[in-house]
């Protein structure tokens, strides 16, 4: 099914995008729905974007549910391991 569910947030950072060029990302969206490319009926999809530069300014991820959960856990571990005084911004 198309779940229609989309969760969004603003973000601050950079991503390497179309044409191999870095760009500033300002927005993120996450949704569990049909992928475009991944070989699964549904995936956890993440878009990191700069909408001011048009729809093509986007990094797209399509991860199976278990892969997405492992990535979340991995990110959490990396953040937890970093000293609080370094977490600025």
């Amino acid at each position: 099914m198309c779940t229609y569910i989309t969760v969004t947030t603003d973000v601050e950072g950079s991503a390497k995008g179309p044409g191999g060029k870095w760009f500033r990302v300002t927005d993120a969206a996450a949704y569990y729905d049909h992928p475009v490319h991944a070989m699964a009926e549904h995936t956890l999809n993440v878009d990191l974007t700069d909408p001011s530069a048009g729809p093509g300014q986007r990094i797209a991820l399509e991860l199976t549910a278990s892969s997405a959960q492992r990535l979340i856990d991995t990110i959490q571990q990396a953040l937890d391991a970093a000293p609080d005084e370094l977490k600025v911004g």
Partner: peptide, 20 residues
């Protein structure tokens, strides 16, 4: 309207983030 000329998957992502 929202993403003229964009790659279909980019257009879909943009429209989705904007609420459909």
């Amino acid at each position: 309207r929202q993403a003229p000329g964009a790659d279909p998957s980019d257009a879909a992502a943009a429209v989705r983030a904007a609420g459909g």
